[in-house]
Amino acid sequence: MDAKEFIARRVARELRDGDVVNLGIGLPTLVANYVPDGVEITLQAEHGILGAGGAAKPGEEDPEIINAGGFHITVLPGASFFDSSTSFGIIRGGHVDVTILGALQVDEKGNIANWMVPGKRVPGMGGAMDLVVGAKEVIVAMEHTVKGSHKIMAECSYPLTAVGVVKKIITELGVMEITPEGIILTEIAPGVTVEEVQAATDAVLIIHENLSVMDV
């Protein structure tokens, strides 16, 4: 199992039956593949779908049904379509239970930066700012570092997407909860030491007294 699958499997265990969930592009999209048995979720796509399904089979693509990444998808029984204004009303209005997305940086205040790297071409924030402010719960699912550089920071240095919204970070090294006291490492990946997680993290981690091993 590669790191991305490992992370996606662990994130999927956070989902509860009945949740309305928005998944970001990339790694977070994989989470849909590992939703536990007995848990039914409704996937929201920010350009106007509730009840999004998996990828369309080759030859069965419908040009009028795409996901937010622009890929042809299917919809499940019970799905609905609506315009962008309604969709972001759903998001901003607190009707999305969980949004799972990647980040360039997250910090111990729950700040997230995931829309631009200064000095590089700017793709725009898309729906990310709305999602992290509007969803009831924001989970960051990402690889712990990028090319050896820290992403879990004492303080974000990149332009922020939102302030104080992230409550949980899940990486291939562990599960972390962001609290007023700081970032608490609550679970650790099998075969990894606390020292290794701390070395891969800019922020100083608080180690939970009942630190457990990540179960995927």
């Binding site: 920010e46 315009d83 204004s85 969709s87 972001f88 924030m125 898309g126 729906g127 700012m129 709305d130």
Partner: peptide, 13 residues
């Protein structure tokens, strides 16, 4: 000028 997507949608609405 870039806007959060929901802000752009609501401005137009």
């Amino acid at each position: 000028t870039l806007y959060p997507q929901g802000t752009l949608a609501e401005k137009i609405r």
